[in-house]
């Protein structure tokens, strides 16, 4: 069969564009922007970091390949061990409180009351304000001399002496935990509220008629149905908190005496602060297996919950 082209009627796309009619090429073309962005800003720095961690590079000193020496070194570093412990403690305590308070707020906001939309918007404020700004405000509130918290406690008669919030090792950790909870609760509250709103009110009514008291309605009906959302929210929060930097850096810089040193702050302090680039990279990388493990466990659990 011969095909005679009718001149000037239809201009076929050029061969290069026609390639996109093949799904494989189209898929590749659509994936490209994301792949380039992720490659440039995530994969490349990650591999550079891995390479850096295997050298003895310092600021101004190119250094050479030293294998796993940096990892051995930080393993024997007592400050590193403190940072690991601190990071776990910080993540665990804040997550428990953020979940508890967030859930409580979400349940309250799920009720009908006047000005509900306004309250919901206000709840988000701590989450919207740039962390560094709000943390500076908190730093003032915890300031040994100007602390408004001390002022309030003093005037209510609870204390007679100033409390050195950020100067005492235990109190400093408690302080950054409080600020992290304050900043993280809105995310939990709003996400869990979205989850609660997908649960039909009829289910609660059916349970009420079935004889379930409020606590049982929560425990047997609401909580199991909210669990998938809760697990995803926790996953995000744990990853973020585990790698938290800004908040601690502004509040305490890891002090006093490394009492609030976390993975990220210690990596920064060692890598940028003292110029031991390769050791800083090694600490950053050391976070990876821990996070990986946490994420895998959570993802497996989420899958189990969702296929129930």
């Amino acid at each position: 069969m011969t095909v005679t082209a009718v001149p000037g009627v239809v201009t076929r796309p050029t061969p290069r564009l026609r390639r996109l009619e093949d799904e494989r090429w189209l898929a590749l073309a659509l994936l490209m922007p994301t792949a380039i962005l992720l490659g440039l800003f995530i994969a490349y720095p990650f591999f550079e970091g891995v390479l850096l961690a295997l050298t003895s590079q310092r600021v101004g000193v190119p250094g050479g390949f030293v294998g796993l020496q940096n990892f051995v070194k930080i393993w024997n570093d007592s400050i590193f061990r403190t940072a690991v412990w601190n990071t776990f403690w910080y993540t665990a305590v804040t997550t428990v409180f953020k979940l508890g308070l967030g859930l409580w707020l979400a349940m309250l906001l799920n009720r009908h009351f006047k000005g509900k939309a306004l309250v919901r918007a206000f709840i988000l404020l701590p989450f919207i304000i740039p962390t560094v700004l709000s943390t500076f405000a908190w730093k003032w509130m915890f300031d040994p001399t100007f602390s408004v918290i001390n002022w309030a406690l003093f005037h209510m008669g609870f204390i007679t002496q100033r409390i050195n919030w950020l100067g005492d090792p235990d109190l400093a950790m408690t302080s950054i935990i409080v600020v992290n909870i304050w900043r993280g609760v809105p995310f939990f509250a709003i996400s869990l509220l979205a989850g609660l709103q997908t649960i039909s009110p009829e289910l609660n009514e059916a349970a009420a008629i079935d004889g379930a008291r409020p606590w049982n309605r929560f425990w047997y009906v609401t909580w199991p149905l909210l669990l998938p959302v809760t697990m995803v929210v926790m996953l995000f929060s744990v990853i973020q908190t585990f790698a938290d930097f800004q908040l601690v850096y502004v509040m305490t810089g890891g002090g006093p005496a490394n009492a609030t040193q976390l993975f990220a702050t210690y990596a920064y302090q060692l890598g940028i602060g003292t110029g031991l680039l390769s050791e800083g990279a090694a600490i950053s990388l050391a976070m990876f297996p821990f996070l990986f493990l946490i994420v895998v466990v959570q993802l497996l659990y989420i899958r189990r919950v969702e296929t129930r």
Binding site: S200, E202, L203, E205, A206, A207, I209, Y220, V221, L225
Partner: peptide, 10 residues
């Protein structure tokens, strides 16, 4: 009570 959308616990 039997609800319009059944309200079975999913």
């Amino acid at each position: 009570m039997v609800f319009q959308n059944y309200a079975l616990y999913p």
